[in-house]
């Protein structure tokens, strides 16, 4: 589904990703862990097409197409979803209007008729129940005045609405209490199907207690320095990142 080969990215002339390769097959959950500043969010930005990140080398193929040539909205319409680390507040734009536009743009892209108002509202209701989101949220402006937890739940709700093929969750667990964490994780698990994939970017193991990854990668200093099964996350939780840093440094010296 997603093939990243030797991806090098810089921001404002500073090299951030220094050759990342990653292959995600349908139905897989990949976790990307790593200390602060290792390039995790940059990777998410590149995959979704933020302009400030400049790709200097490498390729990204998504469902057989060159992802890097697609506009952010086309990527979204082709099924890429980013759960933002810091969801943006958009005063004056209602959630309903926002989601209706997004859903229908996607339908148009796939040659479907727009949903009628009643079908759309029905869909909103169902998805809200699915992700246990408070119904009042949907009547407010996008993220405006939402608490940190509400914003993150709102991201999961949008994910449910847009039914992505590849969802990238950028530190969706940060700033969540246990209940909200559970709601977010349950949302992901309910939306998990045989043909869609997730990239879960996180700092901590605790989200991975609820969302069981197939593969865990450690991103450090712009490179994936370790890839293993879900047990790697536990090891990181127990031992921290220092041993990885040491290993990397030793390798460099060797």
């Amino acid at each position: 589904m997603l093939d990243i080969n030797n991806l090098k990215v810089s921001i404002a002339g500073k090299s951030i990703l220094k050759g990342v390769s990653l292959h995600v097959k349908p139905g897989e959950i990949h976790a990307i862990m790593g200390p602060n500043g290792s390039g995790k969010s940059t990777l998410a930005s590149v995959l979704t097409g933020r302009e400030f990140a400049e790709v200097t080398e490498g390729t990204v193929t998504y469902m057989g197409n060159n992802l890097l040539e697609m506009s952010p909205e086309d990527r979204a319409k082709e099924g890429i979803f980013l759960g933002f680390q810091y969801p943006i507040e958009i005063p004056g734009v209602s959630m309903v209007n926002f989601m209706k536009t997004a859903v229908n743009e996607k339908r148009k892209h796939h040659g479907l008729d727009p949903l009628s108002a009643s079908d759309f509202l029905k869909m909103m209701r169902e998805k809200k129940e699915l992700v246990e989101i408070d119904s009042k949220l949907a009547n407010r402006s996008v993220n405006e005045g939402f608490s940190g937890g509400e914003k993150k739940k709102n991201e999961i709700f949008q994910m449910a609405m847009l039914e992505p093929k590849l969802a990238i969750l950028d530190e969706t667990d940060s700033g969540l209490d246990i209940d909200a964490l559970r709601i977010v994780a349950n949302g992901v698990n309910k939306l998990k199907k045989a043909d869609n994939s997730f990239i879960v970017i996180t700092h901590y193991q605790r989200l991975l207690d609820h969302i069981i990854p197939d593969v865990v990668h450690v991103l450090y200093d712009g490179r994936i320095v370790k890839t293993a099964g879900k047990e790697l996350a536990l090891e990181l939780e127990a031992k921290g990142y220092d041993w990885i840093k040491k290993e990397v440094e030793n390798n460099v010296i060797a």
Partner: peptide, 9 residues
Amino acid sequence: FYLQSRGID
């Protein structure tokens, strides 16, 4: 960008 990332032109 947030809107575009949700597929809106």
